[in-house]
Design a protein around this nucleic acid. Structure first.
Lengths: 106, 106
DNA sequence: TATATATGAAACTAATTGGTTGCAAATATA
DNA sequence: TATATTTGCAACCAATTAGTTTCATATATA
């Protein structure tokens, strides 16, 4: 099963979940209250986010608190940085950027 | 039909296409030669990338050259920047804040 | 202990996705 | 003009996805 960060952030509900738990850890029930969907649907999104290591969970009694694993977000930043180089240096060092990109593959 | 940048970059083939046309404009045929798939499949990916304005096309005779619309990539950067702030500030301190919040029972 | 609450997981459904084959239109070339 | 090339588009298919309903388990509380 393909589970990478890019596929995880493709869904708008999952991006909203990420935004919420970036501020503070939340339970599936508390998260579901923020959306027009069921607790089970949120739970499935949390499972996907967990599988690609974007969130971590901590059990407290019968409640499970989910929080954002911010380190994993850097993966997106690393991928994006090659393109950031392009728009930041478009008019001066374009040649160098192209060489870097070509050697990096995907 | 939902067509946003996040959904567009979710597919690995599309990310590979983006990487290729970031270097130089290419035709669907030339792109398809880089992948183990048909020209039509690449064409569908290009259509999706066009719909969310990640690529632009330029007709030259019967050939159509596709290139990356780098400006649109900034949209991802804008979204990511809120999280970049989190990992760039000292996040030992931030972790403490989150734990404190969590223990306060939301 | 009995009941309520919080959660994950399984089975199912509808919609979407990535891919295919086939075809028509437009352009280049013999 | 006749033929080959380049492309987009439509129809179709298999796999995946997002969501629902239902159920079992674990924990808190009366």
């Amino acid at each position: 099963m393909r589970r990478d960060v890019f596929q995880a952030i493709a869904d708008p509900t999952r991006r909203a979940i990420i935004a919420l738990i970036a501020i503070q850890a939340m339970t599936p029930n508390a998260l579901a209250a923020h959306f027009d969907t069921t607790r089970q649907a949120v739970s499935k999104h949390l499972k996907i986010l967990t599988e690609c290591e974007l969130v971590q969970q901590e059990q407290q009694g019968r409640a499970i608190y989910y929080s954002l694993q911010i380190e994993k977000m850097k993966e997106i930043d690393v991928w994006l940085s090659q393109y950031r180089k392009i728009w930041e240096t478009r008019f001066n060092q374009l040649d160098n950027v192209l060489v870097t990109l070509k050697n990096q593959k995907i």
